[in-house]
Write a protein that binds this DNA or RNA. Structure first.
Lengths: 232, 232
DNA sequence: CACATATTCAAGTATTCTCTTGAACATGAA
DNA sequence: TTCATGTTCAAGAGAATACTTGAATATGTG
């Protein structure tokens, strides 16, 4: 341990906070936050992400390079494609912390949700272990209403994959005497809102789980992978 | 719950992520992160902060206004002074999450610490409840080596206030047969490093508690307030 | 090898951010 | 009221950022 004079102490702090600020800078763009939110669901290639977000390839690549320099994402090359993924659960927790502060403190966020979505169903109170038990004994039908690729990359055990475009088809196959719970990417993802709205219209007792799959994962709850849960 | 067409869904996401990015932008400046770190210790006036950080008043005020617009800090007026404080523990947790990602993922941060400080003593493993018990029974002497005002605003119960400039004076009063533990603002604060270095040089068995007072607080551990612990 | 595809890099422009300076505003004291 | 103090606001210079376009690079295929 060296003892620092005042000037050195100032330089130390300047350099240190400068590094932390690199992370803040990476979080300072709406595009990059959306990328983090999408990458929390599953890894994706540059083109794939650009397409989903409506960005030019070069622009998407640029944003991803910035996230990579801040070490918030990592890459993997497969042939000619480069797949980006979150650099660990800690990064998701950072995005989660940001999301929670925003939700709790920025009235503007509540206002936007209200303006676009009106009142939303929220299944806040339910205990995760209790939900799992009910799914297991068949009291509750759990639907994963994200795009199928995201289901495949990880889902709540016992959940049934129901990508938005397939909801209509499976309406007939759902039991009318059981509670239906739908979840998707996270608190601000609307797939589950829309699924619940449609299900209720069709006469089902449907609710929305507020948590997304990544939130579920970082709670330490079990996550299943693969195409189907038939062979766990 | 309204159903959104694709364009409305895009607008919804754009507006939403834009708001979250305001928080990221507030975290994107090294100065503002340093401010959050200082405000996590105690509320401070603009001039006071500007002085400690070596900024012009106008510049400090400007940064603080940005933090306030992002609702990360709140203000209180007292006479002609305006005191800024963190807008709740959640905000500290956000800064903590950023700090942890940086610490874990940015090699540059480890390099800076290494370059300025060399190897640091770290009392990681100790259990907080165990520490409190030992302090209570007198096995451990706990020193709060932050500036006195920060001690007064909140400290670990049983800790003795030892602002850096007073360390020399109290050296004689410390028992030589007990372990001494010093803590300060947080993992990157060097007050405790310097205190420990001096104490060891003087022959004491001294260690550094990695946690700062705000970290301690958000763990839900007890925090004492006021000038002294004599009348708890 | 030439060719196609996915990604990255480089340069340019418009915008935004930081810090400075000096003026304006708010509060309390004389 | 006038004055002093602490804070905020407004304008401007210089640096950094976001997005576009087009070229360069890397990998796999015929």
């Amino acid at each position: 341990m060296k003892v620092l004079d005042q000037a050195a102490h100032r330089r130390f702090k300047d350099e240190l906070y400068q590094e932390f600020a690199r992370l803040g800078q990476a979080l300072a763009s709406p595009r990059r936050l959306e990328m983090l939110d999408l990458l929390a669901q599953r890894e994706r290639s540059v083109e794939d992400l650009a397409q989903e977000m409506g960005l030019s390839i070069a622009n998407a690549s640029q944003h991803l390079r910035i996230l990579a320099h801040a070490r918030l994402v990592e890459t993997r090359r497969e042939g000619t494609r480069v797949y980006y993924r979150l650099a660990g659960d800690q990064v998701f927790r950072l995005w989660q912390a940001l999301r929670e502060v925003g939700e709790a403190r920025l009235a503007e966020i509540g206002a936007i949700v209200q303006r676009y979505l009106g009142e939303r169903d929220q299944l806040e109170a339910i205990d995760a272990a209790e939900l799992l038990r009910r799914v297991e004994v068949g009291e509750v039908v759990l639907l994963d209403v994200r795009p199928f690729e995201e289901y495949r990359a990880g889902h709540i055990p016992g959940a049934q994959p129901v990508p938005p475009e397939r909801l209509e088809q499976i309406l007939q196959t759902l039991p009318r005497d059981r509670e239906i719970v739908a979840y998707c990417r996270g608190p601000f993802c609307i797939f589950s809102d829309e699924a619940v709205a449609r299900l209720r219209q069709a006469g089902f007792a449907a609710h929305r789980l507020r948590l997304g799959l990544p939130d579920w994962r970082v709670l330490g709850l079990p996550v299943a992978k693969g195409d189907t849960d038939d062979a766990p």
